[in-house]
Design a protein around this nucleic acid. Sequence first.
DNA 1: CCTGGTGGCTTTTTT
DNA 2: AGCCACCAGG
Length: 748
Amino acid sequence: MTTSEPPSSPLFAPQPAQGESYLERLNPEQRAAIETTDGPLLVLAGAGTGKTRVLTTRFAHILLTGRAKPWQILAVTFTNKAAREMRERVGTLLGNPAEGLWLGTFHALCARMLRRHAETVGLTSSFTILDTDDQLRLLKQVMEPWRIDTKRWPAPGLLGVIQRWKDRGLTPERVTPTEDTDFANGHARAVYEAYQQRLKQLNACDFGDLMLHVTEILRTQPDILAQYHRLFRYILVDEYQDTNTVQYLWLRLLAKQPDGSANICCVGDDDQSIYSWRGAEVENILRFEKDFPGAQVVRLERNYRSTRHILGAAAGLIAHNDERLGKTLRSGREDSEGEKVRVIGVWDSDAEARSVCERAESLRRQGHSLAEMAILVRAGFQTRAFEERLVQTGLPYRIVGGIRFYERTEIRDTLAYLRVLNQPADDLAFERIVNTPKRGVGPAALQKLHACARSLSQPLSAAARTLLENATLKGKLGEQISTLLATLEATRELLAREGHVVATEYLLEESGYLDMWRQDRSPEAPGRLENLKELIRALADFPTLGEFLEHVALVMEHDENAQEARLSIMTLHGAKGLEFDIVFLPGWEEGVFPSQRTLDEGGLKGLEEERRLAYVGITRARKLALIYHAGSRRIYANWQPSMPSRFLDELPEEHIARKNEGGARQQSLRTTESLFAAGPLTATPGLSPTRRPTPRPAPAAPAFALGQQVRHPRFGEGTVIAVDRHHVEVAFEGAGTKRLLSSFIEKL
DNA sequence: CCTGGTGGCTTTTTT
DNA sequence: AGCCACCAGG
């Protein structure tokens, strides 16, 4: 996983820890969390209380006091990022690069264990890890014989059901009939079973299986479990509030030694549990002391990140939740109170975007770097308004968490080619590439291949060869497939002789894949070719193709080129674990935040989770948090009046400063006004307490004439060929014809 | 086999 | 309104 780590990283400068210096400058609670090494320990770590530091120092402490060897500690995180960070910081503390550790994400660690014991669950150690795309395609195939009405029971829904079962540690055998009534008239369990069978045939598993299989092995194979009991003397877990049931079972199995002891330390914050919708069980953390009798609990409540006002606002808000272990964030800093949290009402979502961007710009002029500012939204659709405005303003920004590198079509296609190369039996990958680029292999031809493969119990590629040999496949189609197989064969030889980088380049060229994009006239095509170059560059960082593919399957991320200072836009979920000097929190309106859907589906529990999300949002800010609510917002097609979020009422007055920049509704009027809620253009006179709403400015639509030469930041230069109220259609020289918001375009 | 039209949906996301 | 998935027709 870390094979690509540059050895020259300054973090690894030799700097052996002397004595117990690493324990200095820790507060008493932090020290307790580190020095209570034996027995179960729950560390409740509020936002900004030095959680990561405690975790890594504890790791080092165990090693430096000779309690365990590096490989006898199991350290688990949720994200690769967290794992990487921990590895680096442990390395720094120890004065050398941390290698050979059992430190990684739940999934990466499980993959490693599963490769050792794959036969136990009917796989071989070279099993493939499927991505969501593959899972869905496979499930659709498996579902067919049941003739399930896919209108009522769509495949993604069923995949969700299966995943949730896996999250709960339920193999098909463990799913009880009572569990299986709602979906597809009680066929879900049967489909699940068939799906698992098919995965075994393909020597593949999905993400859920990594956890599920290993847990099942630990449950049923006492000798293997004993082996890990002997190995792992200490277990560290990050973000415990996010664990789901299998993860919990897995941890408990590994932690509880035969003599009943358990050196497990879980760090988490029940107030930051925001992933229940994907199977996380807050109960895991709430129940810790019962699960591990004799557990000690340490609370980290001194916050070193944010000003007193920010902490006060966040604390006041979260106090409205009932189901908590209870924790009060106190400021651990000596400095001033800082500025109050701003709550700003604006006219509508456009005004909101304008106001946020103006303020960001003015803060930048005052010397704040854009890299230290973030806009945190509840849902993806909110980003658009900001993006448009930022482009217009010319402020550099980045959207965090859009489509990631390894999820792009061209990258997935290439990976499929590489998977076939690596494992000719990878049918899902073969299916993806056999007609990409178009080779005339449609559903009919594929059907034939499948039938043949099934009857011979062979993978698709082998079946194709057979059909070619006995001339069942002939003509143009046969020729195409035969060329593809020959190319793959030739590439395999090249792979052995020249290595995976050269082989990949050859394969992409010879298969016609690169030509497919070269001939593509869409504006994205050049970018895709760029991405492919980038992929090849990344490939060179790995010694073998297999290792590269393992990395991609588990890590799914890729560093894009280093960036100038940019304003970040991301979701609140995506912001967990990050911090910024200045945080913009737009869209605090009923229905948006808290989200209507969560309220409808999750009731009070849902509301509490939304509130925790709000808490996460506010506590991301070090110096200043600005919360926005708009009087009306465009949802799908039309403008709808919106009411301020109930969370705004829950913020303690003494820590906030309210301001109205437009016609936003006020809290006190919310309940009565909702009865008469009307669109902003018909706002009832007298209801706007401060001043009349500023009229919505006319859209800044510079008149474009047909034939006008224009420039777009991304698409380059072109000619205007049509105009309407907000949009301009432009024929670009390089990028084809596009309909764009006129505000993006500049006259030449 | 490919294209274009239609209908349904529309929170959050890691691995 | 826009995107995507699926189906009918050329």
